[in-house]
Simulated scan of single mutants.
Amino acid sequence: MDRREFLLTAGAAGALLGVPAMARSQDAAPRPPQHPSLYIDAQGGLDGFEPDGKGGYTPTEKLIEGLKQRRIDVVSMTIAEVGNGPDRFRGAMEAIASWDKMIGEHPDLLIKVESAADLAAARAPGRCGLIYNFQDTTPLEADPSKAAMFGTLGVKIIQLTYNKRNLAGDGCLESANAGLSDFGREAIAEIEKANVLLDLSHSGQRTQAEGIAAAKRPPAITHSGCRALVDFPRNTYDAEMKALADKGGVFGVYLMPFLRAKGQPGREDLIRHLEHAVKVCGEDHVGIGTDGPFLGYEVNDETRKRQREFYEDRAKRGIAAPGEGADVLNLVEGYNDATRYDQLAADLKARGWSSARVDKLLGDNFARLFTEVWKA
């Protein structure tokens, strides 16, 4: 089962995970419609659709209500398969067409985000902006010039590698840590030429360092954690985090098991990584990329069964990272529903964060980066 398929099926069931030791997250008040901030998930998924009986999908009331309350404004979602394999270009083209159709059928709910103007339009209550991204350069199929075509079709973020080695360079699970290839340098140049954001998540340490150095525009690491706190390959060393920030980029922290060395992560784990990232990068260069579904997971026996199957499939394909597990769900307890940004904002302010710093973290920093990179 593909990761994105799992996120959709697990997230669509809709019940919430309650954590007795913590306040219920749905108590967090939604932002007023006139609030100027943007909530941006730099790597996530928009679940909450159900079959309409006509071969298509329709939004659930839970999704509509969450968007009406401005629980999220913009989600960057992966629309193509990751990893090496056949037909990656064709699959990406079919996915673009499919999501274009979905957005066209629900114009009052969804907006395709390709510019700063689209980001602004996504502030309206009841709508959500969708950014198309690739978490791999495999859809380019050995032709870096295809980045321009995908950019024209609305793919606004392209990640260089996904865990293992591809033509562009080594992912974070490659023991050789060989860094960028010549093709990878060509791909970076073409991605930037197309006004598409370069994402270095999932890359190996040398690939990240060399990618940041090769970039002419600010790049991003949209979803990772701090390796100084938890030594897993999916997390990022301070040196690369600092280099990214020095180049004007943004480091997105995910809501994933890699935030702690063992067991299910909770609120304190996420906040610890956020505070470390701000210390290393500065408050203008940190954001959120949840790597999870907007409505969260229903936690029950079926979800745990799917998690075991999901992990076993990834382990079989060699793309499961240390820190993943058959019995650890891809979520942070206490932030497992559509109110997670509101609740996180409240938690951070209770720790002394200013409203301005919280707004930067929850979307304004990525909005600034997107606007800068996407402009012609």
Rank of each mutant, 00 (worst) to 15 (best):
D2F: 15
D2G: 02
F6P: 00
L17Q: 15
V19W: 08
R24A: 11
D27K: 06
Q34P: 00
H35N: 12
L38G: 05
Y39D: 01
A42I: 04
G44Y: 12
G48K: 11
F49T: 05
P51S: 06
G53S: 08
Y57L: 14
Y57H: 05
E65Q: 15
G66E: 06
L67E: 10
R70H: 11
R71W: 02
I79H: 04
I79Q: 06
A80Y: 09
A80P: 02
G85F: 08
P86M: 01
A95L: 01
I103R: 07
E105K: 14
H106I: 09
D108I: 00
I111F: 02
V113E: 03
E114Q: 09
D118P: 02
L119M: 13
A120N: 10
P139R: 06
A147N: 07
T152P: 00
L153M: 14
G154K: 04
I158T: 10
N166G: 09
C172T: 00
L173M: 15
F183L: 08
R185S: 04
E190F: 02
I191E: 06
V196A: 07
L200A: 03
H202Y: 03
R206K: 15
E210K: 07
A213K: 11
A214S: 07
A215V: 03
P219F: 02
A220M: 11
P233I: 00
P233S: 05
T236G: 01
D238T: 13
A239N: 11
L244R: 12
G252H: 06
G263E: 07
Q264P: 09
D269K: 08
R272Q: 14
L274R: 05
L274E: 06
V278G: 04
D284T: 04
V286N: 10
T290K: 02
G292E: 11
E298K: 11
N300T: 03
N300R: 08
D301V: 05
E302T: 10
R308E: 14
Y311I: 14
D313T: 14
A315Q: 13
K316A: 14
G318H: 12
G318I: 07
I319Q: 10
G323R: 01
E324I: 01
G325R: 09
G325C: 04
G325M: 09
V328F: 01
A338Y: 13
Q343F: 14
L344G: 05
F366W: 15
E372G: 11
V373I: 08
